[in-house]
Nucleic acid binder design. Structure first.
Lengths: 246, 246
DNA sequence: GGTCTCAATTGATCTGGGTCAAAGTTAGTC
DNA sequence: GACTAACTTTGACCCAGATCAATTGAGACC
């Protein structure tokens, strides 16, 4: 696990400043970034980028949640990434998109036109370094997920997903050693299934089972309370500190 | 798919020169790299790096084959990467290793002490860029593999693995449109199973089935002939150009 | 309130791949 | 050539999760 040391700047709206670029950036870089920056909005369900399309921008999620998915001709789909606020989208130096990017909720993105961004990256090593950092994080996440997909049972998969979302979604609980976590599930059962390589029925059944066994509490379909994070991690199969995803 | 444009230099033994660094590197960089470079050998079966250990070097595979694996407490293991000659190992800027690296055959690695390499990277943007390129390639490969693990059948998984190895292993066939491919499988059935999220029995059965259906020919246990690559790709479920892994 | 729609649950049944077990190959090594 | 030991194949059986199908919410809108 790797927590970037960045010094937050004044611009709250644009995460790329904080996370993608600003580890040690200087005023000039910020001015340049501001000059090529703009915003885009997408509605829930809308496709942000189609796999294979050429991408004209890179950027990061400001608010909302998007997913990266791959699809086979016969319709089987696998989610390969989850984009939460402050996550970076785009592949500097690459022509086309490799996956579908789909807005799960309404999404606002902070974008930079690709060419100017790449030029800026060429001139400012900090940006390239920060991007390498982030890409290594994503690679770790993807490989962690390969273990989930290849070797875990349905119940373990669900627990793994919940613990990842809990970790990313919860404001640090005032509670002592954040045993308790409360959050809203940003995904439908079908989306969860696509992430986990399961069917939505299996997801539903395992959610019910975890609820029955009091590993989680469900309030409505989406609002979740985890009374004991340690227990959830056990269920996920990574007893230790493990399981850090995207 | 992304084929790096590198201009080969004189040093045949050290792939990092050619692939990791030398897209547009200059003489100074080469001299510096030479100064901090050394070689290591590992026997088949030997563990190169344990997950969690701090890594003192980065480098690349010169000869032989190694694997990246993750393991759960109860012994379930998932291979998350395959390292063939010229592949890069190590995570500049990161402290510890995230996976076990295991030599499948005898392996020779060309290594650079980590700190000097990072210092060099700091000074020479080309290296950081090249590393970003490579990491993006690995990320694509990992995500492609997530689709394989999450959504493909056993038969499709085997076909996917074989087509990847064929693509990486075969010298370009003199044959017209390289329909035919011949290569040696560098993995045991168990290693294949760990890569594909299957058991070795299932791998064996599916190999036999592909042989029976004449998708492949087996000569001994390891020497494989693919009479029609198009057919194999169909079996893998990626009809188009698809399936490019590591 | 009713009703339309879409997400989610639950049940019944089926099956691909896992598990357990035995037998066959191959490459060393003495 | 016989003896190991490690790898591989094949068979018989089982079960976790898929599939097919019906039911139950929970908003949103009139």
């Amino acid at each position: 696990m790797n927590t970037p040391n960045f010094t937050p700047t004044k611009c709250e709206a644009c995460p790329i400043r904080h996370r993608a670029v600003c580890a040690r950036c200087n005023a000039d870089e910020l001015v340049e970034l501001d000059a090529i920056k703009y915003y885009r909005s997408y509605e829930a369900g809308q496709t942000v980028i189609w796999s294979g399309d050429k991408m004209s921008f890179v950027g990061s999620v400001v608010s909302g949640i998007a997913t990266l998915t791959q699809t086979m001709e016969d319709g089987r789909t696998q989610m390969v990434g989850l984009l939460l606020p402050s996550d970076f989208v785009g592949r500097p130096g690459r022509g086309g998109a490799a996956y579908n990017v789909i807005a799960t909720t309404d999404v606002v993105m902070c974008c930079f036109r690709k060419k100017p961004f790449e030029d800026l990256m060429e001139r400012t090593p900090h940006i390239a370094h920060r991007l390498l950092e982030m890409t290594l994080d994503e690679l770790d996440a993807a490989r962690e997920w390969m273990l989930v997909l290849g070797r875990k049972t349905a119940r373990e998969k669900i627990a793994s997903l919940l613990s990842i979302i809990a970790r990313r979604n919860t404001a640090p609980t005032p509670d002592k050693n954040n045993d308790i976590m409360v959050f809203d599930l940003p995904l439908t059962r079908e989306a969860m299934a696509d992430y986990l390589g399961l069917t939505l029925e299996t997801v539903s059944r395992q959610m019910s089972a975890l609820k029955r066994d009091e590993v989680i509490h469900l309030d409505g379909k989406r609002h979740i309370t985890v009374p004991d994070m340690g227990r959830l991690l056990e269920e996920a199969g990574d007893d230790n500190d493990g399981g850090f995803l995207i």
